[in-house]
Design a protein around this nucleic acid. Structure first.
Lengths: 128, 128, 128, 128
DNA sequence: GTGGTCTAGACCACA
DNA sequence: GTGGTCTAGACCACA
């Protein structure tokens, strides 16, 4: 697993790292048990501050998506934990609301959005 | 149209205002040509600084969702402009990607997400 | 001569009026001696404040492009007065500078801009 | 890169800053990747408020001409992005129209304007 | 250290 | 009256 960042994006660097790890987990590039790059390795690789990498990993740990073993590194956690599921419902609803509002403001009808989403899902969600 | 804010949320106040106006436009509470509260009115109402309201309105202007007339106030712009549509496609795709990743990480299968979305749409997208 | 305004534009109303009269003079819709709409007529027509129309006309008078005859109305002045020419050189240079900078920032080469301009001129400057 | 302002000009300070950065980018004083003065540095240097500098930088970011990294500073973005080009066409046309109208009102003939422009371009567009 | 948000309030341009 | 610009300065997030 190799991470990268885009300095042009206004998304904070630590957030870009989090998103990438999540994307990799969804797409199967990272599987439960896989080892992530070490904090130092990653920081040296991307020319960023180790604290920034640490912050990203801490957040992923907090979300239960990775776990840390002292002296060993950081590893991908098993998916689909029931507790996670409950915790994520609100976030999910929020994202779906945001998507809906943007789509409606863009002038799409309910039916068009439904089709847009179905096409997306049929293609496998871009990442699969 | 009456706006409100939640000072406890960590979402910036100006962003909350933007989101609310957008929501109101999608839900039909605000229609093209409608007058928004004046900058001062809104600031006094919400006990926030006029500059904060101004910032929110400026962003909405920049997105082409409202327009401003000095000495007159701010007004809702016509929807669905073709140029806007093009500009929003990327944002839409981004939001749908984010939603998809979160949903997949929460352990939902493709089919479950499809059903989740269809239920959401059938309910009218929360706002209708 | 019928004037109109676009409330969506962020250009002030009085400026839109000025620009329109100028465009009409360049394109030949208005010729020296032609009568402009009266202040009240124009204000009533466009649903704007008479002061706004007055302000536009005052500016055109100041630039020597129209003149006012008490009780008679406002009329288009003869073109090309030598004094005007001198006064306008700076403004012209400024506009050309602005155009050049934008064009260069848009990625056009010197040669491309030259061609762009020549095409524009050959078409008659859009307004003729 | 050193910025300056003229407080006597009626052009807003933030606009003067924007124009200067653009000019510097066109003339080659600023190249992609170059670091701009920090918000505070610039404000202290010009004896203006940091918010005013911030406003100028925000607009440049919005136009895609610079990008910002928290804790790092603001940097010049790569030029000539294809999307920018498309977005700027309208602005370009508008400026050329304005120039044309002013020139015609000043009494120049089509041929004279063509020569005026060619001279300008041959001199390298003032900035090169 | 550096950018981002926000307050409190002055002053100006436009309508 | 209404929006736009600007000051002086606080506090927070990010690196």
């Amino acid at each position: 697993m190799r991470l990268y960042i885009d300095p042009m994006k206004d998304e904070p660097v630590f957030q870009q790292l989090i998103d990438q790890v999540k994307q990799a987990m969804v797409s199967g590039v990272l599987s439960p048990g896989d080892k992530l790059p070490t904090v130092r390795e990653c920081a040296a690789d991307l020319l960023i501050n180790p604290n920034t990498v640490q912050k990203a990993y801490q957040e992923l740990i907090r979300e239960g998506l990775i776990y840390s073993r002292k002296g060993m590194g950081n590893f991908v956690a098993p998916f689909g934990d029931e507790r996670q599921k409950t915790m994520r419902q609100a976030e999910l609803q929020r994202l779906l609301d945001a998507f809906w509002t943007e789509a409606r403001l863009s002038g799409y009808s309910k039916q068009e959005i439904r089709e847009l989403i179905n096409q997306f899902i049929d293609r496998g969600g871009e990442h699969e």
